[in-house]
């Protein structure tokens, strides 16, 4: 990665981290309801892969830990936060919530809350790309635990069979909700599981964004060149619990500290400082500017935005009736 790109990515990762930490605070203040799954610790995964891909051009789909993926694709952080606040200005107009962020314009095809559900959807997006003949690829980010669903195997089989342009990114954070991978899964290293479908696969450190980028480069190029699917496993860790109700009693604080010593933001920061590309003061300024942006723009926008109108409760259930009349009434032109 070029120095300028690394500096930009560092700034983005700080935004991703502070955004999520601010969500935590807003949740405690009861500004955000429902379930909230936060991303700190895993930032290098999404960033490294998307640096190798084309955000806003390639189609991205993921599970419920989706805020950062949406923002990385180009979604406005203000709209993502407003969605968490349940506001009409939210990315899904307050109808989706934390687990269902969408930005179709940026080709972020959504966060889905059924574990493993996005696998076949991603393959379908790839099928559509294949039919239309575009140079986009579909990228499916999911956790390791999703691979224990039947949809994983069904989708790997179909993707390989039909050579679909889809990159599966497995963010292996070692836990499925509160059950460790050793206790839920017979195979720890997930990339081994796709060998059964003749899908090329790779595994790397998911904490170092440059390492992720290098491996993702190869993966993305493989898929875009029309060689069919690819599976990339990134070894990572989520600092917080699965969601907000999770007090992490299933793992030790020592284990958490060990992972925090390989923090994706600090790894990149320290490298840039060592390379003489920035100083600690520069970094601190980034943090400060990011916090100010989140407070003065993101939170302010979310606080001040209007609630959806109750009169619009049933809007968006079905397509706008007026546009569908020929098929609903049989009076086609």
């Amino acid at each position: 990665m070029k120095i300028e790109d690394k500096k930009r990515v560092l700034r983005e990762m700080v935004l991703h981290r502070r955004f999520e930490e601010r969500c935590y605070q807003a949740y405690i203040e009861r500004k955000i309801g429902g379930f909230l799954h936060l991303y700190p610790g895993q930032e290098a995964c999404c960033n490294g892969v998307m640096e190798a891909a084309r955000p806003g051009h390639d189609y991205v789909i993921t599970g419920y830990r989706d805020h950062v993926h949406a923002i990385k694709c180009g979604a406005d952080p203000k709209e993502v936060m407003a969605e968490l606040y349940g506001k009409e200005t939210g990315s899904s107009k307050g109808r989706g919530g934390s687990m269902h962020i969408f930005d179709a314009g940026k080709r972020f095809m959504g966060g889905y809350a059924l574990v493993g559900g996005p696998f076949p959807l991603a393959a379908g997006i790839a099928k559509a790309i294949q039919l239309k003949g575009g140079d986009e690829i579909a990228i499916c980010f999911l956790g390791d635990a999703a691979n224990n669903q039947g949809t994983f195997h069904e989708t790997m089989n179909m993707a390989a069979l039909w050579k679909l342009p889809v990159l599966f990114v497995c963010e292996n954070n070692l836990y499925g909700i509160g059950t460790s991978i050793e206790r839920s899964t017979a195979v720890i290293h997930q990339h081994k599981r796709v060998a059964a479908y003749n899908i090329p696969a790779d595994e790397c450190d998911g904490q170092d964004v440059e390492i992720v980028y290098q491996h993702a480069r190869k993966a993305v190029d493989h898929v875009r060149a029309g060689n069919g699917p690819y599976f990339l496993e990134l070894m990572t860790y989520r600092y917080r619990g699965h969601s907000m109700s999770d007090s992490r009693g299933y793992r030790s604080r020592e284990e958490e500290e060990l992972w925090k010593q390989r923090d994706p933001i600090f790894i990149l920061r320290d490298r840039l400082i060592a390379e003489g590309a920035m100083t600690m003061a520069d970094y601190e300024a980034i943090e400060k500017e990011t916090d100010a942006y989140i407070e003065n723009e993101v939170i302010k926008f979310s606080e001040e935005s209007p609630e959806p109108r109750v009169e619009d409760l049933e809007k968006y259930v079905l397509a706008d009736r007026e546009t569908q009349l020929p098929w609903l009434t049989g009076k086609a032109a």
Partner: peptide, 12 residues
């Protein structure tokens, strides 16, 4: 699997 694949394709 294939029903989900159809749904994903329909998004586009």
């Amino acid at each position: 699997g294939f029903t989900g694949l159809a749904v994903g394709a329909s998004f586009l």
